[in-house]
């Protein structure tokens, strides 16, 4: 494999890791506050659809992004209502949200655009276009660093940089602010937070809301940046890979970045099986690369390679009276 191919692969890794990273950080906020969320997939899908639809109709990708976030927030609200207000089962609520999104997106897309459950192709300002970082062109000919800067770091859509910036931001919010401390506490011991006079319900709703925003961005990225329009089931299990990455990262922001880059790299590899064959000399089944994230997660969950311990109060509705 030559240097240019390697750069191409890493470039694809970054593009494919972005939706995983955004969804993974979304899950991080929710689960750190004690709300399990297996509905990441559905929220991404709903956001992907509405962002593409609004972008197609209005011609503005930014309006699309807002609409996508709105759709994702609405599902978050349902999840919050079910799991916080009515103390229902968070896992069942997540399953319901996934199906709600899978069904509604196609039903609405079909009646709105009549294109077999897709939105029209997005062009021009209706999708996020790559942005050239300063001096990328000029520095292109500098050996090694030039191509890295030009190919790998520059030339992505703005949402890729947003996702990368979210990692330190998430770390700072969770570990350096009062809100973050309380949010983590509510996921470990909600009774203690309640005793301190802080509203458990409000904190958990805030976490679920942040989760909605991030999933919304992730979905909008799928439909308006990675691809040009919505197609049925386009999230294609990414919400679950993000969930896997979250466990892989043991619910920590920086590790989440590494896990998502790893899983993004696996996805990039399965797209370029010819390159792998050249490097290691034999053919690798693309299917195998696709499910490797899931297998790795099961191994991690089994505790054979370091133990993944979830937030202690995760999945339990908080009941004030005893």
């Amino acid at each position: 494999m030559d240097f240019a191919t390697l750069l191409q692969m890493l470039d694809a890794t970054l593009r494919l890791a972005t939706p995983l990273l955004l969804a993974c950080l979304a899950g991080l906020f929710s689960e750190r506050a004690g709300i399990f969320d297996i509905g990441l997939e559905g929220k991404m899908l709903a956001a992907a659809f509405l962002s593409a639809a609004i972008a197609a109709v209005s011609g503005s990708v930014w309006l699309g992004l807002l609409a996508g976030i709105g759709a994702s927030m609405l599902l978050s609200l349902i999840h919050g209502l079910a799991s916080i207000t009515f103390r229902g089962n968070q896992l069942i609520s997540g399953v319901a949200i996934n199906f709600l999104a899978a069904g509604l997106t196609v039903v609405i897309a079909q009646s709105w655009f009549s294109q077999g459950g897709r939105t029209p192709q997005l062009t021009g300002d209706a999708r996020f276009n790559p942005i050239e970082l300063p001096f990328a062109e000029a520095l292109q000919n500098v050996p090694i660093l030039g191509p890295i800067y030009y190919e790998l770091i520059s030339g992505h859509t703005i949402l890729v940089y947003v996702a990368l910036a979210m990692v330190p931001l998430t770390w700072w919010i969770l570990f350096r602010t009062r809100f973050g401390l309380r949010l983590r506490a509510v996921g470990e011991n909600p009774a203690a937070v309640d005793t301190a006079g802080i509203s458990v319900v409000w904190l958990r709703f805030a976490a679920v809301g942040i989760c909605g925003i991030l999933c919304g961005i992730a979905g909008a990225y799928l439909a308006t940046a990675l691809q040009a329009g919505f197609v049925k089931d386009m999230s294609a299990g990414r919400g679950f890979i993000a969930l896997a990455a979250l466990i892989f990262a043991k619910w920590r922001p920086w590790y989440a970045l590494y896990a998502c880059l790893l899983f993004g790299f696996l996805q990039a590899m399965s797209l370029r099986s010819d390159v792998i064959e050249n490097v290691i000399g034999f053919q690798v089944n693309g299917q195998f690369l696709d499910v490797l994230p899931y297998i790795l997660t099961v191994v991690i969950l089994a505790g054979f390679v370091g133990k993944a311990i979830p937030p202690r109060a995760g999945g339990e509705p908080y009941v004030k009276e005893r």
Partner: peptide, 10 residues
């Protein structure tokens, strides 16, 4: 989805 939501989560 609605059946799961209402009979399960809600």
């Amino acid at each position: 989805a609605l059946v799961i939501l209402f009979t399960g989560a809600l």
